[in-house]
Design a protein around this nucleic acid. Structure first.
Lengths: 95, 95
DNA sequence: TCGAAACTGTGACAATCGTCGAACTATGAG
DNA sequence: CTCATAGTTCGACGATTGTCACAGTTTCGA
């Protein structure tokens, strides 16, 4: 896939306010480096955003698909974290 | 408008490959600082992208609406340039 | 003043999106 | 084993999007 298309896909994923909120929450917790147990279980997003869990699940999948985040099941929970490579790619555009 | 919504709007505008191409062409010509007469008349985009002029016109309007670019009519042509403020705002997200 | 060039406006259309409710699966606690 | 919690899958729905063809407007050169 060409770079412009990867970037378009990344921006598409971030173009929905709810998805953008999920992503930027993850960015915040990433900076805070609260590694233990951190990583935004989906339930948190369901509570803070006002949308149902099927929708949140769908949004998370889109963020994963755009390679913006990495999701991993830990027991009962889904733990997500930022994908730094994609973060770098996005940074390149704006200089 | 809240920051997250402004950002979402910005990303929405860049989520279409053709719009992203227009924007990044402008970024390139901005860096090159070929000020004289530069600024991407829409006809160039119509030729290089393979879409009609009504569509390009529409895309440019969306970029202007997201405040990513500034468009100004100069005689027969529409001259566009990057809006550095919005560029800065977008940069903030990725650190 | 006439005509071409460079856009813009409108209305249409299929395609995609965001969200939901209902039903489902997986995990851990008791 | 049973139950609650966490998340997923599915099908549906209205809303939004990207593109086009066609017709209009503005500007400049001949």
């Amino acid at each position: 896939m060409k770079d412009v298309d990867r970037l378009a896909k990344i921006f598409r994923a971030l173009s929905n306010p709810n998805r953008l909120k999920i992503y930027s929450e993850l960015l915040k917790s990433d900076q805070a480096k609260l590694d233990v147990g951190c990583g935004c279980p989906i339930t948190d997003a369901v509570r803070s955003l006002k949308i149902g869990s099927p929708t949140v699940s769908h949004h998370v999948k889109e963020l994963v698909n755009a390679e913006l985040i990495i999701a991993e099941r830990q027991g009962k929970f889904l733990v997500c974290r930022i994908n730094p490579r994609t973060q770098d790619l996005a940074r390149t555009l704006f200089g």
